[in-house]
């Protein structure tokens, strides 16, 4: 049979690389899967990492050499990373973004965990309807809320003669809408995690002397750490990366809580765009995210293993 298919007609020396590889692949199908895996993963890595490479290339190339820019670095101008901070107070924008992302995370965790507790561990009339309402809200595109929310937070809505707060150019204008946007997801995920903590543990905590809220923060949340960490990281990333509200709720001045998005656009002058500085700023802006992902990954993994040990 082997002779008929021609697989053994020739010796390996007669074949080229591709022929050799395909012959081995026919004999061992795992090779095909490994090969496909490598190709697909390579493709996605390329798509994900090429922009970074390009940013780096842009940042390292002085403006006057842009016309010669190819795939290979032609200069190594690290100075643009410093210049970026000199031209625009980019550190200030970053600080704004980080502080607002942290504020959003705290709000979402505090309120979301209480709501998650209620939905996940208590039984009350209308629970399903309420949870469904929360979910439905989360299905709307955030853009749909933009104009009303803008009106609300710029003091243009009046209820019973009381004007809504003027939060434009303040952290509240970004933190509040984003907290509200992330909240449904947080409630849903936390409720699922909390509902899996055995009742006995909460009862034990309450008998030992804590309130329900005390039991939530001392026992339930530590045991649902992977879920809480997931939500915290997700909220931070969403807020830090967010464009829409961040761009529209501030006027772009760093002292007015304008976030990174604004900072990057500041490299765009009336006559020229300083692409190399913009690229350098973008790379610096990504660093906190990268740090969080690396650190949080460890936290999530340790949280998962701690969860695995419980009875």
């Amino acid at each position: 049979m082997a002779t008929e298919t021609g697989l053994t007609d020739r010796t390996d020396e007669d074949r080229n690389v591709l022929e050799r590889w395909s012959r081995l692949a026919i004999l061992d199908s795992d090779r095909v899967y490994r090969g496909l895996f490598a190709v697909i993963v390579g493709f996605f890595l390329l798509i994900a990492l090429f922009p970074f490479y390009w940013l780096l290339l842009l940042a390292l190339t002085p403006e006057r050499l842009f016309s010669d820019l190819g795939l290979v670095p032609i200069a190594f101008n690290v100075a643009s990373f410093i210049e970026a901070f000199q031209v625009v107070p980019f550190h200030w924008y970053m600080l704004n973004s980080i502080v607002m992302a942290l504020m959003t995370t705290v709000i979402v965790i505090v309120i979301g965990s209480v709501a998650g507790y209620v939905f996940g561990r208590l039984d009350f009339r209308g629970k399903t309807a309420l949870l469904l309402a929360v979910l439905i809200i989360s299905y709307f595109p955030p853009t749909a809320f933009l104009i009303p929310v803008f009106n609300l937070l710029t003091g243009n809505v009046e209820v019973l003669g009381i004007s809504s707060p003027r939060l434009y150019n303040g952290p509240g204008a970004i933190v509040l809408p984003l907290s509200a946007l992330v909240m449904p997801l947080a409630i849903y995920i936390l409720a699922t995690f909390f509902s899996q903590i055995p009742d006995g543990l909460e009862d034990a905590s309450r008998i030992e002397g804590s309130t329900r809220l005390g039991a939530l923060y001392r026992v339930i949340m530590p045991l649902a750490a992977p879920g809480v960490a997931t939500i915290a990281i997700l909220t931070f990333i969403i807020t830090y990366n967010e464009f829409f509200f961040s761009f529209l709720m501030t006027n772009g001045e760093p002292e007015n809580w304008s976030p990174i998005v604004w900072g990057i656009t500041r490299y765009q002058g009336t006559r020229a765009i300083q692409y190399n500085l913009m690229a350098a700023a973008s790379i610096v802006g990504v660093i906190p995210m990268a740090l969080i992902v690396v650190l949080a990954q460890e936290k999530i993994v340790s949280g998962l293993t701690a969860g695995a040990l419980k009875e």
């Binding site: 055995p198 006995g200 543990l201 009862d203 034990a204 905590s205 026992v219 530590p222 045991l223 701690a306 040990l309 419980k310 009875e311």
Partner: peptide, 8 residues
């Protein structure tokens, strides 16, 4: 009955 020691 299920002992309910805090696992963490």
């Amino acid at each position: 009955q299920n002992i309910a020691l805090f696992p963490h």
